[in-house]
Each structure stands twice: as C-alpha cells, then as structure tokens.
C-alpha cells in the first residue's frame, strides 16, 4: 500500500510537470518542473519525505537502465551523424573534460576559501 501511494504521488507530480511543459512556452522539460515541485513540497514541509522516499529511491536506482533504449536509438540517426561524426565525438569528449575540470575546481576553490575565512572569523 505504501509503495502504491508513493508511486501515485510521483506520477501525479510528473503529470503536473508535463502540463506545465505543455502550456508554458519555454524549453523546460516536464522532469525539471516536477523536480522543482517535489523539492518545494518537501522543503516547505507541505509533504513528508516518507510520502515518496522508498519508491523514489528505487526509481533513482533504476535510472541508468532507462538511458539504454534512447541510446540504442542512435542507430536510427547514423546517416545524418556521418557528415560530421569526428567533430561530434571530439567536441563532445573534449568540452566535457574541460567543463568538468573548470566547474569542479571553481566550486572547490570557493568552498575552501570560505572554510578558511570562516576559521579566521572564529
């Protein structure tokens, strides 16, 4: 019973997300609207964590498997990709490495700086 009601809540929030996506003319997907709604409900105390916890964690656990079908679908767009395949792969890989490195270092630098500053103030 607990799992059914948890799943129902998650599906209901997903539905609201899809409706917002359909009626608001912005390229923001249903999942991001839904994530924001669920976060707001939890953070504001309007909903208890226990209302979604177990089923939610189970869905997150299954997440990687859900990426398999869309990726296999790439065999359908093989022809268009051939035109600039080298560029697609090179740009995807290189920019990913650069973005990951810069984002992580910048975040870490600010955290560390703040932690040091905090100690001084104490």
């Amino acid at each position: 019973m607990k799992y059914i009601s948890q799943f129902a809540i998650i599906i209901a929030i997903s539905l609201v997300g899809e409706l917002l996506n359909r009626f608001i003319p912005l390229p923001i997907p249903a999942s991001i609207y839904g994530m924001t709604i669920l976060f707001t409900l939890l953070a504001s105390g309007a909903m208890k964590l226990s209302a979604v916890k177990e089923t939610g964690k189970f869905l997150i656990y299954l997440l990687p498997i859900m990426f398999v079908p869309p990726t296999v679908g790439l065999i359908e767009s093989w022809e268009v990709m051939q035109d600039f395949l080298v560029a697609i792969i090179a740009i995807s890989l290189l920019s990913t490495v650069v973005v990951l490195g810069v984002t992580g270092r910048v975040t870490q630098y600010i955290i560390r700086k703040k932690e040091k500053g905090g100690l001084k103030n104490d």
Partner: peptide, 10 residues
C-alpha cells in the same frame, strides 16, 4: 525517465 528524474529532488 521523467518520474525518476523528478525523484532526484529527494
């Protein structure tokens, strides 16, 4: 995929 991504709020 959509419901699972929603759950990342947890």
């Amino acid at each position: 995929l959509t419901p699972a991504t929603v759950c990342l709020a947890i």
